[in-house]
Write a protein that binds this DNA or RNA. Structure first.
Lengths: 339, 339
DNA sequence: TTGTATGCGTTATCAT
DNA sequence: ATGATAACGCATACAA
């Protein structure tokens, strides 16, 4: 049977209060000898405090919930990895939940976790029903947003400057002489609208009028990237450059292009976003806008734990710089045929 | 403040015992009217039972631990997704832990979870110190192994026939006329040794003597795939076909080959394993041995929950068939130059 | 410096 | 058919 605090107390010849004190390091007024005696007893019994019981007493569970759209998306699994690592270092566990951009699941996940065992939430998925999160926040549950700067959420946030990322990607295309630049954005991601705004701004800087038909919105999967590409290339005047708002979409474009015999980067320049494992798995290697995944992951965890201990949100907004990583899918615009 | 069972009882004008009964569906001897009254009160107060408290009473936490080598590896994140989905359907949460094939983390993860909040474990990572898991099992903690059939673990297992997968991949190469077939295997994965055995068996079937220099062991990352390829191609007689024991390794080979101007599949045939997102993200698309990820994920969860409720292991071994998916990286062996 | 007693929100046993 | 009450393992105010 598992040892309880009573077993330890008996073995050490003290009361449970004393044991409790050494567990919680309230050993201010305690003879060092008793402390050692208790510690020894804990060792020998292989005693570990029952988290459930101490949680009942108002202590936390040392567990955090991680809400992402889809853990099987490389970007999220990569950031989940860094979150997990950091959390473990700090003695926390992380429960993961994919919302699948599905309102029902969003709600169910939060319910599942809330009255259960988490001390706080990291949320990296856009909620269609924001009241779910807002209720949480109003009730004083620590929440830190990751990957999105949603003004509707008055909590701490860790994210990259998506506008800048979109801007710089587009500028890179423009500097290469492209004028017909399309963007494929993620329908439901807040970050994608920022990236689109950056794209628009870059166009403006170069005095180029945006075209509706060059702006496509879809879900961020490979298959949709292929579709988007197909549609774009049925246009009377197809783009010579594409900025895809995530790597999966970009991969889709590459696949579609291969299928149609369109060479990248000679006939089509392409930029992705995220710099996931996918970006280096393709040939040619994908030019993409990198997010500092490791630093972001570590930072959200630190911030969340800090707020859990603090008891309230610091409402910080931590903004990282995206970085355009030029690899092999971008190049000069093809000569325009003047007709 | 969160509502407790007392609040509900008061509101419904009954005792907490009665409320508890409707919570747990022990409504055998209960007037339907009271039951409804209680339910209504719960609704109105937005009452959710405190899992910690009920866990204290011996009920489980409805949480399972998922131990994988690395959640950022697409294979594991994809299977984690299906596990999560199924677990949620059944009202369970999943806590994920990457062991990083690091003995310290292995131990720490289990400790983190054990005395904490999980009702059982799904373990899909090879433990270098098996006693950690065996202690768990001996203590009656439900454990189901995923992805590996380790004879040292006397519990239920869900996995593919790795031997067969390795065998069929190699046979495919052989049928294409290849004789110089190399294998790149994952150093630490039990599954990889089975796949290697299948490879060896296939060779034997065709009367081909295995060559030591064609058998390379490494960690399953893209970078290592590149290195392995480089080494293989510095051999006096490089292979004309490679079987990589996971998709990442295979991607590494593709990248290395591109770098050296070696065309796939014309000059080199390549097969991967797992059929992750990576396999369809490359060009040409990767021929690979698929594991039925979705079915395996669903099955482990079902099995684990069953055993949690049952109170003991059923010690089932559920074996799935791998499936060779022939895409575009495999083809006929180049004509041999007789000299 | 250490121990006693109470409560945290449940479940379960036994009365009523 | 329903209610009173004792655990569960721990933290903490208060006593000693």
């Amino acid at each position: 049977m598992k040892a309880t605090i009573y077993d330890v107390a008996k073995k050490a010849g003290v009361s449970i209060a004393t044991v409790s004190k050494v567990i919680n390091n309230n050993t201010g007024n305690m003879r060092d000898s008793t402390k050692q005696r208790v510690k020894k007893a804990m060792e020998e019994l292989n005693y570990h405090p029952n988290v459930m019981a101490s949680a009942l007493m108002g202590k936390g569970t040392k567990t955090m919930g991680l809400l992402v759209p889809d853990i099987s998306n490389p970007f999220f699994s990569e950031i989940a990895k860094t979150i997990e690592d950091r959390a473990h270092e700090k003695g926390y566990s992380v429960i993961m939940c994919s919302t699948d951009e599905n309102e029902e699941k969003e709600k169910k996940n939060v319910e599942l976790l809330q009255n259960k065992l988490v001390d706080g939430f990291i949320v990296s998925s856009t909620y269609s029903d924001k009241s779910i999160l807002q209720d949480l926040i109003r009730n004083g549950v620590p929440v830190v947003m990751l990957t999105q700067d949603d003004p509707a959420m008055d909590v701490s946030k860790v994210f990259v400057d998506d506008f800048k990322g979109g801007y710089e990607a587009t500028i890179h295309h423009l500097q290469n002489g492209h004028h017909n630049i399309a963007i494929i954005s993620e329908q439901l991601a807040l970050a994608s609208v920022k990236r689109t705004e950056g794209y628009l701004q870059a166009l403006k800087t170069y005095g180029i009028r945006p075209r509706q038909e060059y702006i496509v919105r879809t879900r961020g999967k490979i298959a949709n990237g292929i579709k988007a590409f197909d549609n774009l290339f049925q246009l009377p005047e197809p783009p010579t450059a594409i900025f895809a708002c995530n790597d999966q979409l970009a991969i889709g474009v590459m696949l579609g292009a291969k299928e149609r015999g369109i060479r990248i980067p000679d006939q089509l320049s392409l930029i992705g976003f995220d710099d996931t494992i996918l970006a280096t798995a393709t040939y040619p290697r994908l030019t993409t806008v990198a997010q500092p995944i490791a630093r972001m992951g570590k930072t959200v965890v630190n911030l969340l734990i800090e707020e859990i201990q603090l008891g309230h949100s610091r409402k910080e907004r931590i903004l990282y710089n995206p970085q355009l990583i030029i690899r092999e899918t971008t190049g000069k615009a093809p000569k325009v045929e003047t007709n």
